[in-house]
């Protein structure tokens, strides 16, 4: 069911919600969190809602979409309530903010948060420079950004590193989980040797490749090199060099990975790039600070050959990256 409330107020929205609930006869709700999606009023609204609806099947939640419309317009709030089949297992409130109100999304969100439940903020597109200081970010225990969706992904990731606060996380990090799991499992097999050096190869603008390099650096404390591969391919390989032979996970086509390690036959493993809804569901699974992510972010500065935006490192990287 979809209910449109043009040019409205938050108390009218709250009223309408109670109304819908009474008419539906639902006595108790099993919502476990409020997910606030902050985006511009564009096609991204529907894409994000779709992902949130999928994720809500695992985490029933109230979804508040703060869609910032034209700032030059007069102040107005248009609301739309979606429940039932139109909202997955959640209830979705799309709040379109126009005029000066567009900069005060927090004032609209506060009255609509579920009582006593965790709040998660998600910026599917461009995130604020310091998410934890953002008025909407401050309302949330957990703040999800997506460096890959920014116009300059590597710069965005660098900004995450500088502005990190407990509760921050980035979808570039959740996209990595299958890679990290495979590499970690590979080290569970003999020979149990120390890793001497690490090389991570991926598209120059791929923030996940930087994070993978950072994570390996933070765990292994050995030299880690970041190499670039043609754009668009995501991460293409990770190689952990050891005396007895390297553990190598290679994914040239973005779909199937090949795992090579000494004493084992070469094995292929499905390793497709994860869709946003899967990453989002993973993010909603845990709400405490992610210390491993923090360590990976901080260790990125110790990775060799990484473009951090500084002109010098770009030049040296291009020299190495030349075929």
């Amino acid at each position: 069911m979809i209910v449109d409330l043009p040019s409205t107020t938050t108390s009218a929205v709250n009223h309408a919600l109670i109304d819908i609930r009474e008419r539906g006869g639902a006595v108790a709700l099993g919502r476990v969190l409020t997910l606030v999606i902050i985006t511009d009023d564009s096609a991204q609204v529907e894409h994000s809602i779709e992902a949130a609806n999928e994720a809500s099947k695992e985490h029933p939640c109230r979804v508040l979409v703060v869609a910032r419309g034209l700032k030059r317009a007069g102040t107005r709030l248009d609301a739309q309530i979606r429940v039932g089949g139109d909202a997955g297992a959640s209830e979705v409130l799309v709040l379109r903010l126009y005029g000066p109100l567009a900069d005060h999304g927090d004032s609209v969100v506060v009255p609509l948060l579920l009582p006593d439940c965790p709040v998660v903020a998600w910026w599917p597109g461009v995130a604020p420079p310091i998410p934890a200081q953002d008025p909407l970010g401050k309302l949330a225990q957990r703040r999800i950004t997506d460096a890959a969706a920014a116009p300059h992904p590597i710069r965005a990731l660098e900004s995450r590193r500088v502005s990190y606060a407990d509760g921050d996380t980035d979808l570039a990090w959740s996209r990595l989980t299958p890679w990290r799991a495979l590499l970690a499992t590979a080290l569970d097999l003999p020979p149990y040797e120390d890793v001497d050096t690490v090389t991570v190869t991926g598209a120059a603008d791929n923030p996940s490749a930087d994070l993978l390099a950072g994570w390996l650096r933070s765990r292994l404390h050995v030299p880690v090199r970041r190499r670039t591969s043609p754009p668009g391919g995501g991460i293409s390989s990770a190689s952990l060099e050891r005396r007895g032979g390297a553990v190598e996970l290679v994914r040239p086509d973005g779909k199937v990975g090949t795992l090579r390690q000494p004493g084992q036959p070469e094995r292929r493993v499905p390793l497709r790039r994860r869709p946003v809804r899967e990453c989002l569901a993973e993010e909603l699974r845990r709400l405490e600070p992610d210390e491993i992510y923090q360590a990976a972010l901080q260790a990125m500065t110790e990775v060799n050959g990484r473009r951090s935006g500084a002109a010098k490192s770009i030049r040296s990287d291009e020299r190495q990256g030349a075929p």
Partner: peptide
């Protein structure tokens, strides 16, 4: 699947990592 010594890539705080069965 218990390793002979601590696996440097594993950490009990890293709850994202699923436990994949060994070979």
């Amino acid at each position: 699947s218990a390793p002979h010594r601590a696996n440097p890539l594993l950490d009990s705080r890293d709850k994202r990592l699923p436990r994949i069965a060994g070979p």
